[in-house]
Each structure stands twice: as C-alpha cells, then as structure tokens.
C-alpha cells in the first residue's frame, strides 16, 4: 500500500530540559465486544497492542493497550532531555500484526 500519510500524527516539544511527545493514531480500536447489528455476531477484536516511543534510538516508553482505549487513540508522554532538531519516533503494532511508525523533529530552543 502506498504510504502517503502516516497513521500517526506526532509532535514533540522541548521545554526546560523536558521533551513532551503527543501522538494521535488513527485506528478503529475494536474491543471484540461490540455486535454487528445486522448479523448479531461480535465484531472481531482489532486494537493497537503496543506503542513504542524512541528518542535517539533508545526506547523511552513501551505502552501496552487493550481495546479499552478509545478509537483513534491519543498518547502523551515526556522524558528528560531532547534538543531542537533531534528525532523522536513512535511506532505501533496491533493485534492483527498491523503496524506503522512516524518520526518527528523535536521543537525546542535553538
């Protein structure tokens, strides 16, 4: 599939030595408990299981999620360090083996 646009909207901002990362992912996050009204069958689970945040190639956060996280999930975390122009990467993997990642430059004092 042509990947023109990442499923992750990503922002990283440095202030007073702490970088805050905000990520908004586009994903249905099906719990497996919703019913398809036409067939009466449960809609199969489909949710992001793991989100990994990396700074300079080092993992700063590993997030595990269930289907209890809202559709088009939002994640925010922060870490000490980070400087203007350095890269932050966020990647997700869902329970069906789907995945995506995105990178963004930290915005901070120059």
């Amino acid at each position: 599939m042509a990947k023109a646009k990442s499923s992750i909207k990503l922002r990283a901002k440095e202030k007073n030595g702490v970088t805050t990362v905000k990520a908004l992912m586009s994903h249905p996050m099906e719990t497996g408990q919703r019913k398809n009204k036409k067939t009466g069958e449960n809609i199969p689970e489909h949710f992001i299981q793991e989100v990994v945040g990396e700074y300079n190639g080092k993992v700063v956060i590993t997030t595990s999620w269930s289907g209890g996280v809202s559709k088009d999930p939002y994640l925010s975390f922060s870490f000490k360090g980070g400087a203007n122009g350095e890269m932050v990467k966020v990647s997700w993997t869902d329970n069906k083996g789907g995945s995506d990642s995105n990178e963004v430059k930290i915005k901070g004092k120059k």
């Binding site: 997030t63 595990s64 289907g67 939002y74």
Partner: peptide, 21 residues
C-alpha cells in the same frame, strides 16, 4: 478492567495521558 499500561525508561517522566472507553 485493565485498559493501558506504560513501561517507562529511566529518563521518562512519570506523566502519561491517553483516552479510554
């Protein structure tokens, strides 16, 4: 009940946000 779990690195600040159902 378990919705989300965050494993933090050494330099990671104990402050996380998400949206849950």
């Amino acid at each position: 009940p378990m919705v989300a779990s965050f494993a933090l690195g050494e330099s990671t600040v104990a402050d996380v946000s998400t949206r849950i159902k």
